[in-house]
Design a binder for these strands. Structure first.
Lengths: 219, 219
DNA sequence: TAATTTTGTAAACTAAGCTTAATTTTGGCG
DNA sequence: CGCCAAAATTAAGCTTAGTTTACAAAATTA
């Protein structure tokens, strides 16, 4: 049985919302993520349950079945591999690739994905630091924490971001904050929890607590 | 205004059927190519005319407008560039890429196409020897003829194929006939117009007239 | 338990693409 | 010149996918 782009997107969203513990996801959370109404989501959930991609009991929220998990991970894998391709091979900036990968992630050939993975030399993280599931669906363990969890004086390396928007990524570029950049917490403002950082080109850098919660670092 | 995959496919087909002289294409020819009924084609033609992609007068056949020609060439360009990518970079066989490229040709980003073209070093022909339109829509002049036009004793190089089916391409592989292979016409059967060839690995090779009409060579 | 929020159901709409059946136009030919 | 067959168009309507609105039911919470 074949599935549509929309179905793949629902599964991707359910995967994201259910987090790494596979918690139940509510209809309204999905409705918000898809920018549709709860009634539309309920319809789609029935269809996905019918096809065996989710466990669905009325009013109980949904979780992915192994089959649904599998498909969601496949789509995520494709998305992240294509992003890696676009940045590493075609020279795109990390702020330019999300939209394009949203289309490429639905190309169906399994062989293509495996060849692409090999061509990129089996990358474990995409250009935003997100882990790329391998062919069997295993996610590399990231081992990073949010910058907002660091204490004054701690040193760390920037390894990921939680906001993929063009605006956010361009802001990081302008502040010389790239993946791999080393940094040290010089000070944390007690009132608004903003951070004063020293980054490894010697410059100082000020980031709001909101930004700090969107930066992932390896201490 | 946005256009669908189906619309792009219709334009591609109209482009192919109208040939290099841009002749009028009949409704029934399109119906045959799309494996639909004439009535469905008429509907779609109205829509395409509405959007300014084709010149359409009832009962008169259709031709592409400059805008339609442009879009058709863009899709063809993408198809052929992706095929080149799959073969040259990912190691696919020329018999494996058509279906995948049918999906990839609809990825919309213009920037992606230009980056891909540069990455491939601006190839002028795809893995089947078909010319790749450049960013402005100019097709390289192929300068090849059908093998079936060669006379006894003539030498030539295989530069293209007119049948992209897996079966045909696998047959060529098994006969050691690849793009770039040199060959000489040892004999032409007067009765059925089949060809006896000597190819540049020294082997002889027998091809039917049907195959000869699907092989393009540069004398 | 009452009030409020979240879900689910029912009915229906839109858009795309398609089909069948009947009708119209064209163009070749006696 | 007019007829006729082939090709094309129109009309009506079907299907699928995804969606909405309006309302009912369940769950949560206060």
């Amino acid at each position: 049985m074949q599935h549509s782009f929309t179905e793949e997107n629902y599964l991707k969203i359910i995967h994201t919302l259910s987090g790494k513990d596979g918690l139940e996801v509510s209809t309204s959370a999905i409705a918000e993520s898809t920018a549709t109404k709860a009634a539309s989501v309920t319809d789609m959930l029935k269809k996905l349950a019918e096809k065996g991609f989710i466990h669905y009991k009325r009013y109980q929220g949904v979780t992915l079945t192994p089959m649904g998990e599998n498909l969601a991970l496949k789509v995520i894998r494709k998305h992240r591999l294509w992003e890696a391709f676009l940045v590493d091979k075609l020279g795109f900036g990390w702020d330019e690739v999300h939209e394009i990968a949203e289309e490429l992630e639905h190309i169906s050939s399994d062989l293509l994905v495996e060849r692409l993975d090999a061509y990129l030399n089996y990358p474990r993280f995409d250009p935003h630091g997100d882990p790329i599931p391998d062919a069997k669906g295993n996610m590399p363990e990231p081992g990073y924490v949010m910058l907002s969890e660091l204490k004054k004086g701690q040193k760390a390396t920037l390894t990921g971001v939680l906001d993929h928007s063009q605006a956010f990524l361009q802001y990081l570029d302008s502040a010389d904050l790239n993946l791999g950049t080393g940094l040290e917490v010089l000070d944390i403002n007690a009132y608004d929890h903003s951070y004063l950082l020293q980054i490894d080109n010697g410059k100082n850098c000020f980031v709001s607590s909101q930004v700090a919660r969107h930066l992932l670092v390896q201490p």
